[in-house]
Design a protein around this nucleic acid. Structure first.
Lengths: 355, 355
DNA sequence: ATGAAAGCGCTAACAG
DNA sequence: CTGTTAGCGCTTTCAT
């Protein structure tokens, strides 16, 4: 079209994005495929002019390298695995969305692996290296043990964690302790002293400080000169049913709390159902606060501590890129902590006067 | 270990799952790599005894074929792309979860692509063939036009839709019209006649009957000898905010409805917030019903029409497998419809007596 | 700075 | 039924 007379078949340009190979590009640019490979791969020792010509040819022909060939020849796969406990929960969906956006922009494909329990996780680590199909793995909200991490590292697979943090590899998350303090301190400032806690049951959760949220509750109470009462904490699954169940246990106490701090919004919502069914009003009879700022929290007027989930996914993606592009990871793996903030809505108020 | 004296290096068995190649297996079984390939690939014309020996050698060496080499040599990639509008929404998360389970069981990897608007979708279709990295693509809840579909088909890529159905390729979904009837008929049976509808704004949604839910509303009303009043239908985004916004518009009507049918639970929940803020009680002052049976519907006592979302994902996965494994697809693409069912909870009741 | 050539691990004719 | 021989498309020494 543009005066191209070197295409022997004259067809390359006619079937764009069909099966243009590196050779096509090379021929088009008048160089060898080796040079074309170097030019496209940003290798040193390639004349600037050549690099440009190759780039143009590639763009013109709409060339895209075959991932299989690249990988087979020793290059990266352009794929990153993401291990997710529960793809259908909002928290994970957001994480994935952020991650996908970041990776997509860098032309990396995101391969999803649902990994529920520890057994599934082990199965994954046992098989993945064999399939050697990814350049990096992003672990969402749970930990990977030293052995597994070492295994991947030795295989040249980058590991990054999101939705929590871990000592041995780069991670993004929030400061759980701080988030917990924001929630409990809010309740304390309102005047509550008998504060219950719906703690998320540890599904091998990720964190160096395994229960920053729980420890925050203790610390906050102590700072308010109130001795934490362990009867007020119940540990339940991280979902609505868990919260509902936990709340009824709390209600069964001789002296129920006047406010409840749930480790996540779903649990808080579950607690609210129990309260509603028990004929108790929120916040008049009892206050409730969660963590997350789930979209439904806004719909239910739930007071909560918001955390930037999608952003965590994005940052994790950026970490993967940094590590993949720029040589070896820093000696001390970064553990980014994104800010959380209290979102006042309608489920908290000063403790009501007893009837 | 087992008297193996043919391994020249004697190392193959020492580094299991490291980089055992087909050649290793072949050597171990005393055959050529071609035969080994046939044996493993269940090809005809291989002596049963040979096949067994090769299989054993493969198992012993913990052999796993290199996906890249396989693909490069013309085989399938073992990967399927899934196009998702909003990974973080419960509906899509469930679909993905079901799909992943089914594909994983068949050793297929799920590559996630977030595809929001039509432009993104086009970008995807324009690039995918070039990347030729997947054997199939599963489209979640939106349509693919004829051109795009033909393009993929000609490239040998299987296309399946889930979360709705479409004429030109296999799909799984629910009968939207029927689901809508279940919801509206319920309201009608309760005695409501002035029924509002919060319709989901069409984000190029998938369905041959683009708004089965909306048409159900009309049909149900007519069957109840009530002329549908278009003022009672507002079209808004498929989320809580959309529902909240739509509800306030409905409340602004000269004669507001006594019941509202929302196209999905999130919208219903949004509507409930508006009602609560307006000081109206649900269901005493106004009834609300949704579709989905989102986990939070149970927590908020929302009456709804449940649909088996995860199951839809699973069925879509099965369709992919069927098409991939068993030759060409049937002439008439199957359009499976999974059953929905009314779930009675606390947000609907007979219309209250006017004050 | 660039080219030639040798694979990466597997499948697919084509011969025996 | 099984072995031989070519590649698939790309990266990489090793020369030049």
């Amino acid at each position: 079209m543009t005066g191209d007379t070197t295409d022997p078949q004259g067809t390359a340009a006619l079937r764009p994005s069909s099966r243009v190979t590196l050779d096509d590009v090379a021929r088009h640019a008048g160089v060898s495929s080796a040079t074309a490979s170097r030019a496209l791969g940003d290798h040193p020792h390639v004349a600037e002019a050549t690099r440009r010509r190759v780039r143009e040819a590639a763009a013109l022909l709409d060339y895209v390298a075959s991932p299989e060939a690249t990988r087979l020849a020793g290059g990266p796969t352009g794929r990153v695995a993401v291990l997710v406990p529960h793809p259908s929960r909002w928290f994970f969906g957001e994480l994935i969305e952020g991650l996908e956006a970041e990776l997509r922009a860098a032309e990396l494909d995101l391969v999803l692996f649902r990994v529920g329990g520890p057994e599934e996780r082990h199965a994954f680590f046992a098989r993945l290296p064999a399939r050697r199909g990814v350049d990096a793995v992003v672990v969402l909200a749970f930990a990977v043990d030293e052995v597994e991490h070492a295994r991947l590292a030795s295989l040249g697979v980058v590991v990054v964690a999101a939705g929590g943090r871990v000592a041995s590899y780069p991670s993004v998350g929030i400061d759980d302790h701080r988030a917990g303090r924001q929630a409990v301190d809010h309740l304390l400032h309102l005047g509550h002293r008998r504060i219950g806690m719906l703690a998320g049951g540890d599904e091998q959760r990720l964190s160096p400080d395994p229960d920053g949220r729980a420890s925050a509750w203790r610390a906050a109470l102590r700072d308010a000169a109130t001795e934490p009462d362990d009867d007020l904490v119940v540990t339940v699954p991280w979902d609505g049913e868990g919260g509902a169940e936990g709340m009824s246990r709390l209600l069964g106490l001789r002296a129920p709390p006047t406010a409840v701090f749930a480790h996540c919004d779903e649990m808080a919502l579950g607690a609210m159902r129990t309260l509603r069914r028990a004929g108790l009003r929120v916040p008049e009879d009892i206050s409730v606060i969660g963590i997350d700022d789930h979209p439904l929290a806004a719909l239910t007027d739930l007071t909560t501590v918001a955390q930037p989930v999608r952003e965590q996914g994005r940052r994790a993606g950026a970490m993967v890129l940094d590590t993949l592009r720029g040589g070896p990871p820093p000696r001390v793996p970064p553990a980014e902590m994104l800010p959380t903030r209290l979102v006042l809505r309608g489920t908290t108020s000063p403790p009501g006067v007893p009837r």
